[in-house]
C-alpha cells in the first residue's frame, strides 16, 4: 500500500500532462474546480460528481459537548458540516486496489 500524499501540485501536473496547457494555467484550472465546488457547498447546494461521489451539507443542532481531557462541559453551537459519500465505483476501486 502506498503512503504518499498528493497535493494540488500533483493534480495540476496530471492536468498539464493530459491537456497541452502551461503548468501555470493547469494549476489555475485545478483551483477553479475546487473553488466552484466550495462555493456551491457554501450556498448549501449538493455537489454530485457521477462515478466519484456526492458532497452534501448537513445541519447539526446544538448539543452539550465535553472536554475529554478535563471532563468540563462545553456548549456546541448549531453548525453546518460537510459529508462525502463515495460512489460505488470509487468504493470498489479503493477496495480492490488496497486488497492484500
Amino acid at each position: 500500500m502506498g503512503d504518499n500524499t498528493l497535493t494540488r501540485m500533483d493534480l495540476s501536473e496530471a492536468v498539464f500532462r493530459e491537456v497541452g496547457l502551461s503548468r501555470n494555467e493547469s494549476a489555475q484550472l485545478v483551483e477553479s474546480v475546487l473553488n466552484h465546488m466550495s462555493d456551491a457547498l457554501v450556498r448549501g447546494e449538493q455537489v454530485k460528481i457521477s462515478s466519484f461521489g456526492t458532497f452534501s451539507v448537513r445541519d447539526k443542532t446544538a448539543r452539550v459537548g465535553r472536554n475529554p481531557k478535563t471532563g468540563e462541559e462545553v456548549p456546541i453551537q448549531p453548525r453546518r458540516v460537510l459529508t462525502f459519500r463515495p460512489s460505488h465505483l470509487m468504493k470498489d476501486r479503493v477496495a480492490v486496489g488496497n486488497r492484500k
Binding site: E18, I49, F52, N98
Partner: peptide, 16 residues
C-alpha cells in the same frame, strides 16, 4: 482528470 487522479491515488492507498 482531477477526479480521476484522486480516485487513482486512493486506489493505490495514497492520500490527497
Amino acid at each position: 482528470t482531477v477526479f480521476e487522479e484522486v480516485t487513482d491515488a486512493m486506489a493505490r492507498g495514497d492520500r490527497v
